[in-house]
């Protein structure tokens, strides 16, 4: 009887010690799930280990670079086939947007922006006019 009481006391001490160790050192993943601070860090780690959201998925497609008025004027998309019309239009429209010239009237622009805007739109409309003529079979 006395031996049983001693054994029970020892077991309860052992349980308490194990529980204390568990709390201090952390048991399994329980601590990670309950602590809010760890959640964003784990998200970042997951993202950085995979695809960078700011990198282009297709390495062949380079991020758009701003062109100068001279560079855009030197573009010559006057190919006879209009299969690349959409790509050209996207490129030119990106340039117009990057420079903040969407929907702007020329009288509201500086001389430099006006030259850039005129060159870009000239290319866009010559593409559209040529390609619509080709589609009609002219």
């Amino acid at each position: 009887m006395k031996r049983n009481a001693i054994l029970r006391f020892a077991l309860s001490r052992l349980n308490f010690s194990l529980l204390a160790c568990c709390v201090l050192l952390g048991c399994g993943g329980a601590k990670n799930h309950t602590t809010g601070q760890n959640a964003p860090r784990s998200t970042v780690q997951q993202s950085s280990s995979g695809q960078d959201p700011y990198q282009y998925k297709d390495k062949k497609e380079l991020p758009p670079q701003a062109m100068t008025a001279g560079e855009i004027a030197s573009l010559d998309p006057s190919g006879k086939d209009c299969t690349n019309q959409t790509a050209w239009e996207r490129l030119i429209n990106n340039q117009i947007t990057m420079r903040g010239l969407d929907g702007k009237n020329p009288e509201d622009l500086s001389l430099e922006d006006r030259e850039f805007n005129a060159s870009a739109h000239q290319i866009l409309w010559s593409l559209r006019m040529n390609c619509s003529a080709i589609k009609r079979g002219n």
Partner: peptide, 19 residues
Amino acid sequence: RKFTERVQVPQGLYSAQGV
């Protein structure tokens, strides 16, 4: 169709185009 318009800007007259 395209058009042209003479636009008054601070630097003088400018020939704008449009559609």
